[in-house]
Design a protein around this nucleic acid. Structure first.
Length: 493
RNA sequence: GGCCCCAUCGUCUAGUGGUUAGGACGGUGGCCUCUCACGCCGCAAACAGGGGUUCGAGUCCCCUUGGGGUCACCA
């Protein structure tokens, strides 16, 4: 088998949503599975839709996911677009440039070749003429499309023109899709389509065929929306006399509302996920599982990147569309957070704490980290879990203190007794606090649960916190006692 | 509308002619328990419909229905 080479070929028209990245993951995983190469090619053939910053976004996100690009735009190529930033990677490779706007001569040459061979022709029909033609066709209830008026007119090269592909009307075309099996058309559902635009830029059809061939792409993975233009591409390969790659048309990823993922959909943007405290490895794992499964009766769903590479093959890809379920992602993210070594959990949490203004001594956070780790699904939840460690006035949820046999006077009793017992503790450590407080509960005639509600709120202000005794131990005797005293003042008589 | 793709619990999926249709998320009941989580145990929940083929269909074929895509000098 020749080298497996796949590419992710986005157009820089804005941010990529999670569905776009899944395409990249699949291409990457496939290449790596077979020990091949994964390339990034920028399909910037539409100058009007170009959005500055989108290439940078793409490369940085891929890097966040830990995906190494083997070949792609060089720093100079990026620079051409003002997409250079300080640590832009210098990708490059033997098949460059990797930005289509920098490959214009290649497309022109290819178009000329096709004209010479009689597979294409120049056309100088104006947009107005085409529009009129289309309207007439619609009026006659015909399928709209170019009539082929210029096929035999021999439009000279020095006049403004486009180059059109001479699409044979009566032809059977079929190919073997790696995911769907044989797909066949008994006639070509396209008219003479444009290959080279009048501004000298290629259309997608020409560019993708020329580049995939030029870059020796072995497997072309793309969204299923491309399936219906595959006949054009196949015909183009035939006209050039080139061997087409293996095509794999991927199923769609929909949002939770069942509609195609878009900017409107929540949680569709990878950089948002990062800011929301999701881990790259969890997102990679989860997103790969939309439309792919290991098969063979396996029900494994937690995979390291290496396992993914090892198990990923095209026949594990589904043919039907899937839904991106943020709820399950959150679950999986929680799983990944819990699997993190504590120290790494601490490190990864830091930026989030900082951003939320939760400033606490590292050793205090570290002491509670193991408990926090199993209580959060996303890193943005860490702050609220430990901010009671900050030295600032507490906002206490006083009303939550009452109920289940606890009224104001009972609360006072609990707090007063706790104050006394904690104060006389020889060692302010978890175990000792545990014993002392349980004894208090017993003495006031309450079960630990209800009794500790008052203490929890008194000392942390909240109803939901890491384990109580550990939290007290970290806070230290002075802070705990003074917070209890403060609360005593707040209690109604 | 023509052409093409798709169809298993709410969701992600396993299944490749013979299964009590399995797992996971979510839901729900319980255990554990200082709150919240974690963990563990249980329950509910699916083969879109109709025809074939076959001794036997979730699995193969056809039709219907329902989704989706595509028919540009956008990708």
């Amino acid at each position: 088998m020749t080298e497996v080479r796949t590419r992710f070929a986005p157009s820089p028209t804005g941010f990529q949503h999670i569905g776009g990245f899944r395409t990249a993951f699949f291409a990457y995983l496939l290449a790596k599975h077979y020990g091949g190469k994964f390339l990034l090619r920028v399909e910037d053939t539409d100058r009007e839709r170009f959005v500055p910053g989108s290439i940078r976004f793409l490369i940085e996100e891929l890097s966040w996911f830990g995906i190494q690009i083997d070949e792609g735009p060089t720093k100079e190529e990026l620079h051409t677009y003002g997409e250079d930033w300080d640590d832009a990677p210098g990708l490059g490779g033997p098949c460059g440039p990797y930005m289509q706007s920098l490959r214009l001569p290649k497309y022109k040459e290819a178009a000329e070749l096709l004209i010479e061979k009689g597979f294409a022709y120049r056309c100088d029909c104006t947009p107005e003429m085409l529009e009129r033609e289309r309207n007439e066709q619609m009026a006659r209830k015909e399928l709209p499309g170019y009539s082929g008026y210029c096929r035999t007119r021999n439009v000279p090269a020095d006049k403004p023109h486009v180059v059109r592909f001479k699409v044979p009307q009566k032809r059977t075309v079929s190919f073997n899709d790696a995911i769907r099996g044989k797909v066949q058309w008994d006639s070509i559902p396209h008219r003479d389509t444009v290959l080279l635009k009048s501004d000298g830029f290629p259309t997608y059809h020409l560019a993708v065929v020329v580049d995939d061939h030029d870059m020796k792409i072995s497997h072309a993975l793309r969204g299923i929306e491309w399936l219906s233009s595959t006949p054009i591409h196949l015909l183009l390969y035939e006209a050039f006399g080139w061997e087409p790659p293996v095509f794999a048309h991927l199923p769609v990823v929909n949002g939770p509302d069942g509609k195609k993922l878009s900017k409107r959909n929540n949680a569709a943007k990878s950089s948002d996920l990062r800011e929301q405290g999701y881990l790259a490895e969890a997102v990679l794992n989860f997103v790969t599982l939309i439309g792919w499964a290991p098969g063979e009766g396996s029900d494994q769903e937690i995979f390291t990147r290496e396992e993914l590479i090892q198990k990923f093959t095209l026949d594990g890809i589904n043919e039907s569309s899937g839904v991106f379920d943020p709820v399950k992602l959150a679950w999986m993210n929680g799983l990944y957070i819990r699997k993190l070594p504590v120290q790494e959990f601490i490190e990864r949490s830091k930026p989030f704490l900082e951003k939320e203004g939760v400033v606490i001594p590292e050793h205090e956070f570290a002491a509670l980290a193991p408990h926090v780790q199993e209580r959060v699904k996303v890193l943005t939840e860490v702050g609220a879990m430990v901010d009671f460690l900050m030295d600032r006035p507490l906002q206490r949820q006083m009303d939550a203190m009452f109920g289940k046999g606890v009224d104001a006077s009972k609360a006072r009793e609990i707090l007063t007794l706790s104050l006394e017992r904690l104060n006389t503790l020889p060692e302010f450590k978890t175990e000792a606090i545990d014993q002392a407080l349980r004894a208090v509960a017993t003495e006031v005639g309450l079960k630990p649960g209800p009794a500790f509600v008052a203490l929890r709120i008194a000392v942390t202000g909240k109803t939901i916190t890491p384990p109580l005794f550990e939290s007290f131990a970290v806070l230290g005797k002075d802070r705990v006692l003074s917070r209890i005293r403060e609360t005593l003042e707040l209690l109604p008589q």
